[in-house]
């Protein structure tokens, strides 16, 4: 019944992490979607037994390390986001494509809001609305992945 194995999950997360590490700069940095979080959401929807809140937290630590900020910021943001994703996972796989997109957008925004809160506590100035652009590009990427044939729903429905 279960077709996904841990290897493919961790390899895809590693690939997403390397995408994050690419030398993004300028406009690219502003537009850059959160690859790691998108991959996490994908796996949480599709294989919640293998990829859960703990995985999200662990990946968050690596992203923290890569961004050079205080340890635990991305970890907390990813934990909160994956919690919401996990709670609604059963329902989400029954959604149609549009509903799922809106939901993914909501998840990405939750993660960004948690980060924004933490960064504001740390004394950073707000960047304005531009800050939320990566959520939109993330949704576009999600849609592109769906068009290219990635499937979030069918496998999960069987459990």
């Amino acid at each position: 019944m279960r077709t996904t194995d841990l290897k493919s999950i961790y390899l895809s997360l590693l690939a997403a992490f390397i995408f994050t590490l690419l030398p993004w700069a300028g406009v690219g940095l502003l537009l850059r979607p959160d690859f790691v979080l998108l991959t996490l959401i994908f796996w949480i929807l599709r294989a919640p037994h293998q990829c859960n809140i703990g995985t999200a937290w662990f990946m968050g630590l690596w992203v923290d390390l890569a961004t050079g900020g205080i340890f635990g910021q991305y970890a907390l943001a990813y934990t909160a986001t994956s919690f919401v994703a996990v709670i609604y996972q059963r329902r989400l796989v029954l959604f149609n494509n549009m509903q799922q997109l809106v939901y993914v957008l909501a998840l990405l925004i939750i993660s960004q809001l948690v980060l924004l809160t933490l960064k504001t506590f740390a004394g950073n100035e707000s960047l304005g609305w531009v800050y939320f652009v990566p959520s939109l590009t993330g949704v576009f990427l999600w849609q592109a992945a769906i068009i290219l044939g990635l499937n979030t729903g069918k496998y999960s429905r069987s459990n």
């Binding site: 859960n52 809140i53 937290w57 630590l61 635990g72 910021q73 907390l76 909160a80 919690f83």
Partner: peptide, 17 residues
């Protein structure tokens, strides 16, 4: 449960921070 995991990992993140 997801709630327990959330509590655990959030606490861990906060301690790290």
């Amino acid at each position: 449960s997801p709630l327990a995991r959330l509590a655990f990992f959030s606490a861990l993140s906060l301690v790290l921070m």
